[in-house]
Design a protein around this nucleic acid. Structure first.
Lengths: 240, 240
DNA sequence: CGACGAAGTTGAGCTGGCGCAACCTGGGCG
DNA sequence: CGCCCAGGTTGCGCCAGCTCAACTTCGTCG
């Protein structure tokens, strides 16, 4: 475990509003940990003994029901606070976090949480905002799933991914980590077959560009109209 | 506005962990407001100038999409903290809260939030737990909507309502406020028609007892198996 | 460099539940 | 006391998207 320099983290939301001295104090209590692609940062159901800030990389957060149904809750990007189960009074992690690419995180023991928020109230505010914006996102997903067709939901999901983890590339915006059709299906509540059909149709229209575990958005504007239901690229149109 | 006695609120989560003196101080800054059935406590999109604790009654929290699609996000019961938009760094309420029955709430100005959590860190903890458990619930809903049939989702929704706001009655457990088929549909992402068919079928089996804006669960045990997908009371069974 | 497996594509058929429509019912108000 | 209407029920037909299945492509590991 290497010491982490303050300059690397000073502009993260979690450290904003703290003096350099306070930042150093906080950092002194943290460990920096490296996770290689595919490794789990924590597992659903495990004791929530730490909370984290992601320094580098991307994590996929997945939930599995008792019946074995799996679903992708969200992706975590660099700078975000995550694994704050303890702060919400949970004793165990409610989901699994897996490194989608090689990643680095800072970890604090959950037991310090209470002491830290008393000492640094801004920490509590940051956590509230983090959890609050997750709640917003999740509620948005519920509304999409109640009222939108699969095609719109997939469009929304891709646009959200692009906003959160989009890398500008000559052909458009590329999702910055490997993501399968199955992953997209698990984010939108559909099957990989349907996602595949939709992406194929879109590719024909020049809306996206696919590939193995790879999605590039070529026309975010039209994807937006699709997402808002202003038009539709019917995927199962029958040839006459 | 009447002064609120500490003894009425001392055992609410929000006031736990505070000394009687602190409780009094907090109360002194609050206003108590009465809402009659159907009145809005706040409207989606309005400036988030206050946060609340519900003292008595039940609220329905609804969200409407830009396309006009409405959905019920949750119900608030007595004792709960709500309307904490400001704490999540939102300037406007993301949903509308309507009194499902005559209700009473305590209100604080949002502008005091920051000062209060610095003074009473336990407030921040309470808020985090509140928001956290909402996040849990919402994520559970997403998973249900991805992997369950409508019938299971309705069963889950009713059981959740009963747990949160169930009143023991001779025939079983009654939802403690008026709730329409439409409301249930908006909680489960289906249509009032489908809910009606399902409840009718269940009523024939003696699982529930219906009525205008009224639902009584008569066999929570079988409803649980239904919710877990262990059996199914097919609603559209065709007569041979 | 061959072959095995993970990821993706595509076809065909079936069905849950939605949309539409007509109708019933009980509670409240004039 | 009778009318009105919000809330509820029910029948019918249709189709989006799921299931099942076969096949292709790509990457990687022995």
């Amino acid at each position: 475990m290497a010491a982490v320099d303050r300059s690397l983290v000073a502009n993260l939301p979690m450290f904003a509003g703290l003096t350099p001295t306070e930042q150093d104090e906080l950092l002194r209590e943290a460990r920096s940990i490296r996770y290689s692609k595919g490794a789990a940062v924590f597992d659903q159901g495990a004791e929530a003994d730490r909370f984290f800030v992601l320094l580098h990389g991307h994590l996929r957060v997945e939930k599995t029901t008792s019946q074995g149904q799996q679903s992708v809750a969200r992706y975590v990007s660099a700078g975000e606070l995550f694994g704050v189960a303890q702060a919400m009074n949970l004793t165990h992690y409610p989901a699994t976090a897996v490194a989608a690419v090689d990643s680095i995180a800072l970890a604090w023991p959950s037991s310090s949480w209470h002491r830290l928020i008393v000492k640094y109230p801004s920490l509590a505010s940051t956590a509230l905002q983090t959890v609050g914006s997750r709640l917003q996102d999740t509620q948005a997903r519920v509304m999409e799933m109640s009222s939108e067709q699969v095609e719109q939901r997939v469009a929304h999901a891709l646009l959200r991914l692009a906003k959160q983890a989009g890398k500008k590339v000559d052909a458009g915006v590329e999702i910055d980590f490997p993501i399968s059709r199955q992953d997209v299906a698990e984010m939108t509540g559909t099957t990989l077959h349907t996602v595949s059909r939709i992406l194929s149709a879109w590719e024909q229209q020049g809306l996206v560009e696919g590939g193995r575990q790879r999605i590039v958005l070529r026309d975010t504007h039209r994807l937006h109209s699709l997402a808002e239901g202003e038009e539709a690229v019917r995927a199962n149109k029958r040839a006459p």
